[in-house]
Amino acid sequence: MKSRENLIQFGLLITALSTIVIHLLIALFIFQEGLPIILRVGINEFVCGTHWSPQQGQFGIFPMIVGTAWITAGAILVSLPLSLSCAIYLSEFSTPKVRGTIKPIIELLAGIPSVVYGFMGMVILFPMIRNHLGGAGPSILSASIILGIMILPTITSIAIDSLQAVPYSYREGSLSLGATRWQTIRMAILPAAKSGILSGIILGIGRAVGETMAVIMISGNSVIIPNSLFDPARTLTANIALEMNYAVGDHRQALFATGIVLFITIMILNIIANVLSRRGVEK
């Protein structure tokens, strides 16, 4: 009886370790496939090189890094005003009933397939940009707008949870001192929820950096260092997805190496978010 219980506990421990194993396997395989070329080309040359032409053996992913940074920054700029409005409004100015209805609706945004977002960018945004701002359509601007919408639910949902986690006594305390609700939010609630909201934003950045299919459909994908919002750009993820089908040899390794850069970026973002959200809990 006892040994059976121990066996079960051991089995459960194995399942619990599965996420660690998978994580390490992912790291192992990506590094094993991609590291050789980075070492051969040189880290500096690979990360800061501006020429990507695999046929000529030139593997510089700097344009993709810049493209990813531009699009991610744009997405955050688009997303923040909307997601923070939603979070603050729903947490502080609405009734639990309204919150209970609207929050799942916003979370439903996360359920829409990313290819559908990309498609909406193609059929709605491109014509709008072409008609009103000029250019062809596929650009940093369109990718930023679509990605901004895509990361709305992530940020909103975490921000609402962080705001709701602020003890009710903070609100009562501040209001009873004669502050208006907005003053209370600004002076008491937002500072208390800061870490949580920040960790939500970091996770949103992570999602934007990692998004692939929608970005391919709307960012234009040219390997150039963009100069303006209306230039097309290629992200790290798009670089992998676009060329993987036909890549062989060094070229394939270079795509895995792009994956390494992506993986490390995401890990750093994850660790920051993790630390921030833990700090939020400790408070």
Partner: peptide, 25 residues
């Protein structure tokens, strides 16, 4: 806490990385 951390991280890994991994493995 180590398991929790890796679980959190795994949920943040972009699908394209999973795709690469699944492709190789």
């Amino acid at each position: 806490s180590i398991i929790r951390f890796f679980t959190e991280c795994l949920s943040g890994i972009p699908s394209i990385i999973f795709g690469l991994f699944g492709f190789v493995l």
